[in-house]
């Protein structure tokens, strides 16, 4: 019987969803294989979310120190390495988020525990963990195992596990711990959060989003799609590549690093459907995808699909609206 350790991700006093998703999956694995579920919180003084975490864990270890209020790879790595050396957890779960991507690889090197990143499922076969990952933009899945070790680190893709609305409450005891005395220098210092997503268009309130992706090809085509959106009474939105190329400002972006949207209908033109994008449209009522690539991952989640040149479809829509 071993331990599954979940590293709690929180920001500005709130637990991130990925934490609940990891606790849920860890709980399932612990039930099946009689492991213990320990959550570790590195947080500031009197964080309000500790109870929420305790309800979902057998134990909570809480490093309570204001230096831990904001994420720091240097401090997190040091504290977690100490904890892992002491308790040797079988599997350590970390979110595959911006912070997790900064923490997990360095923690893996420090502890010597093998790492698998961006996993969408975790299995235990004959006592060995195995993971499922999506590669080549979701077009291929991979099953991976590890070199033998007494512990392993896995980062979990956000949205991979859906905890139920009501949970069977556990009553994890909270063990408070102090930071070790000989902490390393913090080579990276937090200054502030800034909202890069604010602008004059609010894509989160629209009933109809006409959203464009890499498939629109060039900047000049953005205007035509904007006109289509307006003519349809909808709002223009986009996926990441369009913002990366500076064709539209960030506040148009749907997805993990942009906005989560919930229109009645989401019309996706030339969007292939990277998981970061799909994570932003789970709240959409109906998704209609138009893409030249019939194997584009967006067709796996869309309600309706059209395999065609997006401009032909856009022109036909404009034409019909003129007639109507």
């Amino acid at each position: 019987m071993g331990e599954i350790l979940v590293v709690v991700e929180h920001r500005q006093g709130e637990v991130r969803d990925i934490t609940f998703e990891m606790l849920f999956k860890a709980g399932e694995l612990c039930k099946e294989f009689s492991h213990t579920l320990t959550a570790v919180v590195l947080g500031g003084k009197e964080e309000q979310f500790i109870d929420e975490v305790a309800k979902r864990s057998d134990n909570v270890i809480y490093y309570e120190d204001d230096r831990l209020k904001n994420f720091s790879a240097d401090l997190y790595k040091e504290v977690l390495n100490g904890l892992i050396e002491e308790t040797r957890p079988f599997i350590t779960l970390i979110g595959h988020s911006s912070w997790g991507m900064d923490l997990a690889p360095s923690l893996s090197i420090k502890t010597g525990y093998p790492l698998a990143t961006d996993c969408v499922d975790i299995l235990i076969e004959d006592g060995h963990p195995k993971v499922i990952r999506q590669i080549y933009s979701g077009k291929v899945f991979s099953k991976m195992s590890f070199k033998e070790s007494d512990g392993y680190i896995v980062t979990v893709r956000p949205g991979s596990f859906q905890p139920p609305e009501t949970i069977e409450e556990k009553n994890g005891g909270v063990i408070k711990k102090d930071l070790p005395g000989d902490l390393p220098e913090m080579r990276k210092k937090f200054i502030e959060f800034i909202d890069s997503g604010a602008g004059d268009v609010d894509i989160t309130q629209a009933d109809l989003l006409v959203s464009v992706g890499r498939g629109i090809g060039e900047a000049e085509n953005v205007q035509a799609m904007k006109e289509l959106a307006e003519r349809m009474g909808g709002v223009l939105a986009c996926s990441r590549p369009v913002v990366d190329k500076n064709w539209l400002p960030k506040y148009y972006q749907v997805g993990t690093s942009g906005k989560s949207v919930k229109p009645k209908v989401y019309l996706a033109f030339g969007i292939s459907g990277a998981f970061q994008h799909l994570a932003g449209i789970t709240g959409a009522g109906t998704v209609i995808a138009i893409n030249k690539d019939k194997k584009a991952p967006i067709f796996r989640v869309a309600d309706y699909g059209v395999v065609d040149d997006l401009f032909k479809v856009a022109d036909a829509l404009k034409e019909q609206l003129k007639e109507g």
Binding site: P114, L115, A116, K130, Q134, I135, G138, K139, V140, F141, S142, K143, M144, S145, F146, K147, V287, I288, A289, P297, F299, R300, V301, A302, D303, Y304, G305, V306, V307, D308, K312, V313, D315, A316, E319, Q320
Partner: peptide, 24 residues
């Protein structure tokens, strides 16, 4: 440190209902 056991294509899902026909 990691070993590929297998690659496989995504499991078939119901997926999207495809709309056929010309653009109009």
């Amino acid at each position: 440190q990691t070993i590929i056991e297998e690659y496989f294509l995504p499991p078939e899902t119901e997926g999207a209902e495809m709309i056929e026909g010309d653009p109009s």
